[in-house]
Design a protein around this nucleic acid. Structure first.
Length: 616
DNA sequence: GCGGATCAC
DNA sequence: TATGGTGATCCGC
């Protein structure tokens, strides 16, 4: 959109309030990474004008405008509620808040040295290693949306998460590179090998970030945390040629904030002293805290909380205005408290597996089915890779207006195969088509949650024998047992493992027999997908027939269909058995890695199948 | 338990 | 012309 020189704030928009929300909208349009490093010298005013003008009138823009208006309304309600509360007697709320603060204070642990390590413009930095000439020109990685950009580009206001055409408006000479994820993963592995010397139980927060607890390392080597981090950063730069920044503090929350303060290639330490920590938090913008995003920032700002220090003044109101969890979180921010427990991601249990893709607007039903089929195939692959099935299946769509909807169902048994995923998702899509006339989508995705492990007996990533846990008894443990659970020495007996294997076999037979039968309303609406799917579809979606017994859609190939009908006739008895045997429990290895001295540390070779999971 | 919303990277 | 994908969590109902 060409610049006409007019002030965007003065542009009148149809069907909207006057321009008072323009400021917040422009702020919203600046994107979530405004607080990132490398933006200090940027004229944000000018940048926001350019972004505004580039976006103006688009469907994306209109959606952002809607969201902005809704947030403004929500804030009005918050302010009204605040005024109402302030007319009441708040002494008990105040007392409750103070009691909670006192209780938290008792839990303060200043004995640990936690660091957060963050690679500087990671993807861009890796690309610059291959093409050093890019170091001096503005460059970004990503196609439709930028994932990273180098510091030269940031001087133009270019940021990660920005649409590339907008970035090009800000910086026409911007060099755009496609993502090369394998390359970044390989480099991340090099960096992690070094970090493991300092803490073998380090925690990967993402491909380019990690938390380490270096308390033991400091003690064993009689070094101060600052020295250790200087050393580690130098070692990483020396051997991998990638610069990293780090934060050093008593807990993960402050370390994370601190790692951003001397970016790039720097470090910042907050001493393990209560006074120093309180002072550090006092003047810290709430937006810098991990977990407080643009929305909560605006809500807090509206009641007068801009800095973490401001939380104290408003402590009596926070629980009623923002909820219990949020107020507890804010209390921790005020005190500068955070977790000190750093543990490998492999010990943390996965909750969902999902896939989604954005495409050009599609309204054609067959084309949408082709997309759904493709998503089902992708999810099957991801479920196979991560060795899970899902007891819950969710369909996610984004309308052409950018509005997002999700619909989910809970099949009686865990699902993982593309045709099953498709069979269960199709009625949900059909219902949306029925309920929303002229449905046009720009994104479609599938997600499995309520996961059940399909991990077989074998040797896992750390060389530890693993077995699928036998089925749970009606009143027993939660579905997934992680290393962090209460009984870390819990072992599965051989007998129980055999039992499990036996039940697994029974279940596999059931799988073949049952071929799914579900509560799927509205199947008559679902048109049958034809073989003439979109070109990129490898395999045509299966043809669906309705079962004459249960009236639910089934894969229409003769054998499958007949088996289903047979099953459906005898369902009541079999269903019970299936439910009793369908529990599969993952045993996540515990004590797989132990913190030990650096010289003893071995980085095991990666099993290719587990590789992507490990690096996620 | 479901669906919307927020958040991080 | 045009604005991502994956995973987690919380809230209100």
């Amino acid at each position: 959109m060409e610049s006409s020189g007019e002030n965007p704030a003065s542009i009148s928009r149809p069907d909207s309030a006057p321009h008072e929300d323009c400021g917040t909208l422009k702020y919203q349009l600046l994107g979530p990474s405004l607080t990132k490093a490398g933006q200090d010298s940027v004229d944000q005013q000018k940048v926001s004008e350019i972004i505004y003008n580039a976006s103006k009138g688009s469907k994306f823009f209109n959606h952002e405008q809607d969201r902005d208006r809704n947030l403004t309304l929500k804030i009005e309600r918050i302010l009204k509620e605040k005024a109402r509360l302030e007319r009441l007697d708040l002494t008990s709320d105040l007392r409750r808040a103070d009691e909670y603060l006192a209780e938290l204070e008792l839990s303060r642990d200043l004995s640990q040295h936690v660091i957060h390590v963050d690679c500087d413009a990671f993807f861009a930095a890796v690309e610059e290693l291959d093409r050093p000439e890019l170091k001096t020109v503005p460059m970004a990685v990503g196609k439709g949306v930028l994932t990273t950009c180098n510091y030269v580009a940031r001087k133009f206001g270019v940021r990660s998460g920005m649409a590339s055409f907008v970035a090009k408006k800000l910086c026409p000479q911007l060099v755009l590179l496609p993502q090369n994820y394998d390359k970044y993963t390989a480099k991340a592995k090099e960096i992690r090998a070094i970090m493991a010397e300092y803490d073998p139980l380090f925690e990967s927060a993402s491909i380019d970030e990690a938390y380490l607890n270096i308390t033991a390392y400091c003690d064993e080597n009689h070094l101060e945390p600052g020295e250790v981090v200087e050393r580690m950063r130098a070692e990483i730069l020396e051997t991998t040629k990638v610069s990293v920044s780090a934060g050093i503090a008593a807990n993960a929350k402050i370390a994370k904030i601190a790692s951003n303060l001397n970016k790039p290639n720097g470090q910042f330490q907050v001493p393990n002293e209560r006074e120093a920590i309180m002072e550090f938090m006092r003047d810290l913008s709430v937006r810098k805290v991990n977990g407080i995003g643009r929305v909560f920032e605006r809500e807090l700002e509206s009641i007068g909380v801009k800095k973490c220090g401001d939380i104290f003044l408003h402590r009596a109101l926070l629980a009623k205005l923002f909820g219990e969890k949020a107020s507890q979180f804010l209390a921790q921010c005020y005190l500068g408290l955070g977790r000190t427990k750093i543990e490998p991601v492999e010990t943390q249990e996965r909750k969902s597996v999902s896939t989604e893709t954005t495409f050009h607007e599609i309204g054609d039903k067959e084309e949408l089915r082709a997309k759904l089929w493709w998503a089902a195939q992708e999810l099957e692959k991801d479920l196979a890779r991560t060795q899970f099935k899902g007891r819950t299946l969710a369909l996610k769509v984004k309308l052409h207006t950018f509005e997002v909807l999700t619909r989910q169902i809970a099949p009686s048994r865990a699902v993982s195969l593309a045709k099953d995923l498709y069979s269960f998702a199709l009625p949900m899509l059909a219902k949306l088509e029925k309920d929303i006339p002229n449905l046009k989508l720009r994104l479609l995705g599938l997600r499995c949650s309520n996961l059940v492990s399909t991990q077989k007996v074998g040797i896992n990533f750390f060389g530890v024998a693993t077995q699928p846990k036998p089925a749970t008894e009606p009143n027993s443990e939660p579905i997934l047992v992680s290393a962090s659970s209460a009984n870390p020495d819990h072992e599965i007996s051989t007998e129980r493992a055999f039992e499990a294997a036996a039940r697994q076999e029974i279940q596999d037979e059931m799988n073949d027999l049952e071929k799914l039968s579900q509560e799927t309303p509205d199947v008559s609406v679902a048109p049958e997908p034809k073989a003439s799917a979109a070109p990129e579809v490898v395999e045509a979606p299966p043809i669906m027939w309705d079962c004459p017994i249960c009236a639910r859609p089934q894969i229409a190939d003769d054998r499958t269909f007949n088996e289903h009908v047979d099953f459906c006739l005898s369902k009541q008895t079999i269903r019970q058995v299936v439910q009793d045997t369908s529990e599969e429990i993952s045993l996540i290895p515990h004590n797989a890695r132990k913190r030990k001295t650096p010289s003893q540390t071995v980085i095991p070779e990666m099993d290719p199948k587990q590789k992507r999971l490990f690096f996620e």
